[in-house]
């Protein structure tokens, strides 16, 4: 950036025109500064109001804490459900997004890749409430036979212990919806990164007699590594904070810790619990929900921060 650009402030005698110039500059500059400070204030406001309204929840117990001895034992299981569902979503979305992005960037002929790329970009704009609707109406019933099968063959894994839910509206279904919601944005970023791999690197691999997959492993994936981690962490951040898809799809049991993701006794997530309980909340219960929101904020902040750290570290290295 240039440092040579400075306003002409050192002039001693100002003609009339220069004076209006100076006033105009000052006003404009102060407006910009004011807007910037307002953003700082707004974020501070978010934190302050959440803390002010959240802290009283520490006194809540029993009925006020949704039947738990303290707010911690209410928020704890929800935190567990949030992390479990997002982790599952990440496990599902990772191979799908990498495969989809590689097909678009390296496998499909451009006649297929271009329209699919556009479609994926547009799907990134589909509102979460529509994903939730589709999750209940279309996905959940179709998940039941898959759950049965998982339970038959992998019932010894605690995740699939069962008994299988009849409605299919379980944490695993919610995780699948979360994964599909994160898929377009994660794919779009990965596609960008894969396509940015220098042609010279790819040609170097091909000229050595590499097959297409060997070329991807030699040139594309190493180049994209830090970007891939950052994209997936961004997707994870989205999944952690997503409310509607879970609130609609999941038929939650309440704040319980359960590893079983295909039965009707489900853990719930923070965001969904807030959405579902808010309408009937009053008094200290509102503070409990706000406190849970604060916990969610801290969690997503940590994940996003990690993603950005990984991304910038990768840039410095490359």
């Amino acid at each position: 950036m240039t440092t040579a650009i400075r306003e002409p402030e050192q002039q001693q005698e100002l003609p009339a025109r220069a004076r209006t110039t100076r006033v105009g500059d000052a006003v404009f500059r102060r407006t910009a500064l004011g807007a910037a400070l307002l953003v700082v204030g707004l974020l501070a406001g978010v934190a302050i109001f959440l803390v002010i309204q959240g802290l009283p929840a520490l006194d809540a117990s029993g009925e006020q804490a949704y039947g738990k001895p303290s707010v911690w034992s209410y928020v704890g299981p929800l935190l567990f459900g949030t992390i479990l569902s997002s982790a599952l979503a990440l496990v599902i979305v990772t191979p799908l997004a990498i495969g989809l992005a590689l097909v678009i960037s390296h496998y499909a002929p451009s006649k297929v890749a271009k329209p699919v790329g556009y479609l994926v970009d547009l799907l990134a704009a589909v509102p979460s409430v529509v994903f939730g609707l589709w999750g209940i109406a279309v996905l959940a019933p179709r998940m039941v036979p898959i759950f049965d099968w998982l339970n038959d063959w992998f019932g010894w894994i605690p995740l699939f212990a069962g008994p299988v839910s009849n409605s299919g509206r379980t944490l695993l279904t919610a995780s699948v919806v979360l994964a599909l919601m994160a898929l377009p944005i994660v794919t779009a970023i990965l596609r960008e990164i894969f396509a940015q791999t220098p042609t010279t690197q790819q040609e170097a691999a091909l000229a050595l007699g590499a097959t297409r997959w060997e070329m991807i492993r030699m040139a594309v994936l190493p180049y994209a590594r830090s970007g891939m981690v950052a994209a997936l962490l961004l997707g994870l951040g989205r999944a952690l904070g997503e409310t509607m898809a879970v609130a609609m799809v999941l038929s939650a049991t309440g704040a319980i810790i359960s590893f079983d993701v295909i039965s009707s006794a489900n853990s719930n997530t923070i965001a969904a619990a807030i959405a579902n309980n808010y309408a009937n909340a009053a008094g200290l219960k509102i503070n409990v929900l706000i406190f849970a929101g604060l916990a969610l904020f801290v969690l997503t902040f940590a994940v996003n921060f990690l993603g950005r750290y990984v991304a910038t570290r990768g840039q410095v290295k490359a």
């Binding site: 690197q201 050595l208 097959t211 190493p222």
Partner: peptide
């Protein structure tokens, strides 16, 4: 073509060593 490229090597305009290796 993969076998062809293995037997007929190529050096490019710009040096292109693999950056991560």
């Amino acid at each position: 073509p993969v076998a062809v490229r293995r037997q007929i090597g190529m050096v490019f305009q710009r040096p292109n060593p693999f950056p991560t290796m």
